[in-house]
Every structure is written in structure tokens, then in C-alpha cells.
Amino acid sequence: MIAATFTAPADYRSYQIKGQVISVAPAGPDGEARASLYVDAMLKVMTGLGVSREQLSHTFPLAGLVCVRYRPEAVFVQTPGPKAGSAVTDSET
């Protein structure tokens, strides 16, 4: 099993996806390149929100990346507030 949380930095809207791990393998050159582009984009977003690169220096490591593939089974609201922890239903998507 895996639980992965995804958050939009600008408004802290967050969702957690739980599911079964299908495979874990080294990221490889394509995965490493995509991760590098993502880190660059996130550093721009986060510094635009007032977080310094020094504060983020250990948040986005690129060494030893792995690719985790999983089958999502459930989605939960994680954003702080009254719905935190509640399951997201098909009618909410």
C-alpha cells in the first residue's frame, strides 16, 4: 500500500491518494529529466510565495530517485477544514 499527498502551494488545497504499489524501480534518465524540470518549476512557485531556496535545500533532492507506479484505490481531502480526511466521491470529481 502507498499513500501519496498532493498539495497546491498557493492555496494549500491537498488530496491524499491511497493505492496498491505496482512497481518500484530506479527513475532512469527520462524520469530524472522530468523530475529536474518539476523541481525547477516548484522552486519558482515556492520562492514566489516567499519560501527561500535555503529553506527548500533538502525538500527537492534529485539523487537516488525511484519511480513508484501504483493503482489508486481511494482519494481523500487533506486540506485543513471540516472536510479534512473525508473521502472524495465520484460526484465531487
Rank of each mutant, 00 (worst) to 15 (best):
R71K: 15
Y70N: 09
T47D: 01
G50T: 02
Y12S: 09
F60G: 02
A87Y: 07
A63V: 00
A10G: 12
L37N: 11
D90K: 09
E92K: 07
A10C: 07
F60S: 00
A84C: 14
R53L: 11
G50N: 12
V45G: 00
A3Y: 05
V68S: 04
T5G: 02
V75N: 04
V68M: 09
G28W: 04
A25Y: 03
Q55W: 05
P72Y: 04
Q55K: 13
T79Q: 06
A33E: 11
V77R: 08
V24T: 12
R13Q: 15
A63M: 03
S36Y: 02
I2S: 02
Y38L: 09
S23P: 04
S36M: 05
S57Y: 00
F60W: 09
A8F: 06
L43P: 00
P29E: 15
E54T: 09
V88E: 07
C67P: 01
Q55S: 12
G50A: 05
I2F: 03
L43Y: 09
V75M: 09
V24M: 13
E92Q: 13
K44T: 13
V75F: 02
L43V: 10
D40C: 02
E73W: 00
S52Y: 00
L49R: 05
V39Q: 05
A4M: 08
L37E: 15
P26D: 12
M46C: 06
D40A: 09
V51D: 08
S14A: 15
F60R: 00
Y15V: 15
Y70R: 04
A41I: 05
G48W: 00
T93Y: 06
T89W: 05
S86I: 06
I17E: 02
V88K: 03
V66Y: 10
A33W: 04
Q20D: 15
R34G: 02
R71A: 11
L65N: 01
A8C: 14
R13D: 08
G31E: 03
A84S: 14
G48I: 01
P29I: 08
A35C: 05
K83D: 15
T89H: 10
A63G: 00
A8Q: 13
G81R: 09
R34D: 14
Q55G: 05
Y12H: 13
D11W: 04
D90H: 10
A84I: 13
A35V: 06
V68W: 01
S14I: 08
